[in-house]
Design a protein around this nucleic acid. Structure first.
Lengths: 232, 232
DNA sequence: GTCTATACATAGATAGAC
DNA sequence: GTCTATCTATGTATAGAC
């Protein structure tokens, strides 16, 4: 294996450009659902929503969203059952709100990082951006992955799987690279799926990497190296 | 990308050597839990257990094991609630029985396929074996992955994560290859994790591959190619 | 806006007839 | 061995006091 070099986008650079955080996520979440949420005071609404989202992530990780009762949620947030229902009108709606807002955030950040003209740079930047985003919000990415099946079957038409969004990004870049004769690959769909699988491993098995003292930049370099060997 | 060649172990070869099936899995499951299961007639016990396991896999896929009620299970298996409780004494025990038996089956098949002297052959055979096994029992592998967090916290000492078992297999082979100076890699742990992530993608996103008409042997060749490029 | 108290449905589990 | 009927705990959701 080649000695890993520093990735095209550093973690610090990413953080200063994108402002990804659970706090800003909850601001957007409240903004997008202004009519549903019955609390007028926006600041208060955001603060409590942050506690709710944090608690959902923590509790779901252990038992799954289905296994998390609203009594659990009430206890963890220190909000009463009655209070909770001012922020959503059903458990299912709570899930949908978080999921849809999450998908939008991911899309936005990915688009912001896919603007280079050179396909190789664009590919590597996108890999970094996705890893860094999931480094900031690991519980949220893990939540989306594990709980996607809870999406309501109704209105499924409008609900595009978040996975497909991510994978589609990478496949598009690979196809651009093929057109421009920069990449020589026969099955871009397989390779984009492989990239996505490697990115998922980062947030799904976080304990494993932290135990081995692998930093997110090291992992980014590893993935980029692995992928680039397939492009030759 | 190189033109993919036929993998070192064909799917047909694997099937004729290993006899992996849901039926034999349930036979073993009944055998391992002879004292718990209150049905004397072994054939009947196995048949009904097969219906139970099938139903658990199907229902869990949609709502998760937690979200599956025993009434759902009763309906799907066409066994009454009372009848079900002759096969397990609690929902949690049902989960544990299936999980532990599954881990044992995976271990056995992996060991049967890791006997070659040459590390490269051993690595490639193991990749094939794991993919083929998950091709036969995709719902079961998916179930283990998604529901592993439901394992009871008590007695966790004895409960080794199935993931670690699989990943450990690959890491051992990589380290053997390094010792014998056949592989030149610096971080076998990262690469074995990557292999595992690629294998997981096969059974977690099965619909995706079948939609694109990718066969399990094609995918095996793809993974082996990707990995071998990292060993050079 | 938040709380307590409570309604109502559904969960897991069991007893006893057949 | 299997079924029906039922127990008790817990779940989601709401009403009304403060």
């Amino acid at each position: 294996m080649k000695q890993s070099k520093a990735p095209v986008l550093s973690y610090q650079e990413f953080l200063s450009e994108q402002h990804v955080s659970l706090e800003s996520f909850c601001e957007e979440l409240v903004g997008s659902n202004r009519t549903r949420i019955q609390i007028k005071n926006e600041k208060r609404a955001t603060q409590n929503m942050l506690r709710i989202v944090k608690a959902v992530m923590t509790l779901s990780q252990r038992k799954g969203f289905q296994g998390m009762s609203l009594r659990d949620l009430s206890q963890k947030t220190e909000l009463s059952m009655g209070a909770l229902y001012n922020y959503f009108s059903s458990k299912e709606e709570l899930f949908e709100m978080v999921y849809l807002q999450g998908r939008q955030s991911v899309q936005r950040v990915m688009q912001n990082n896919a603007r280079d003209s050179d396909p190789e740079t664009r590919l590597n930047r996108s890999i970094c951006a996705h890893l860094y985003m999931s480094e900031v919000l690991p519980q949220m990415f893990s939540f989306f992955f594990m709980e996607a099946r809870n999406l309501p079957r109704r209105s499924q038409k409008n609900i595009i799987d978040l996975e497909k969004v991510t994978e589609g990004f990478f496949e598009q870049i690979l196809q651009d690279g093929i057109k421009e004769k920069r990449f020589r690959i026969q099955q871009p769909a397989l390779l984009s799926g492989a990239i996505k699988a490697l990115l998922q491993d980062w947030y799904l098995k976080r304990y494993k990497f932290s135990g081995k003292k692998i930093s997110v930049e090291q992992y980014a370099a590893f993935v980029i190296d692995l992928v680039s060997r397939s492009l030759e």
